[in-house]
């Protein structure tokens, strides 16, 4: 099962990267980046998954004494928690810049912004 999730994550990452490389519209590029972002998060969580174990929360079903043999790895989950929150911050920043670029040129086509291209 972890293999399926891992393959899905890699495919999402590749699809998102392809979209970011081929689309000319700024908003479409940002959409593609969020897809790639979701793919990477799926990969990291899938690496932490272990067959037949449960979520890292201690309660009646998982007493603290046998936690080490019953729960999955909590570290990747903590990492992905961080990654998702930072991801939305980056997306908001990219969207604000896209809005400003549209204000300057009345266009979202990346081909219209050639000043730094040589």
């Amino acid at each position: 099962m972890a293999h399926i999730a891992l393959a899905t994550g890699f495919l999402l990452f590749l699809i998102g990267l392809y979209g970011a490389l081929t689309n000319r519209n700024l908003l479409r590029m940002i959409v593609a980046f969020t897809v790639a972002d979701a793919g990477i998060n799926v990969v990291i969580v899938a690496v932490g998954h272990m067959r037949g174990r449960t979520a890292p929360i201690l309660d009646g079903a998982v007493p603290a004494a046998e936690a080490a043999s019953r729960i999955i790895d909590p570290v990747p989950q903590a990492l992905v928690l961080t990654a998702i929150v930072i991801g939305v911050g980056i997306t908001a920043l990219m969207l604000a810049y896209a809005y400003k670029l549209y204000e300057a040129r009345r266009s979202l086509d990346i081909g219209k912004f050639m000043e730094l291209k040589w």
């Binding site: 998060n41 799926v42 969580v45 979520a55 929360i57 989950q77 992905v80 998702i84």
Partner: peptide
């Protein structure tokens, strides 16, 4: 999918 992978915290986020 995160819920299936036993990560409810990540799923909520």
């Amino acid at each position: 999918l995160f819920l299936v992978l036993a990560s409810p915290d990540v799923a909520m986020t």
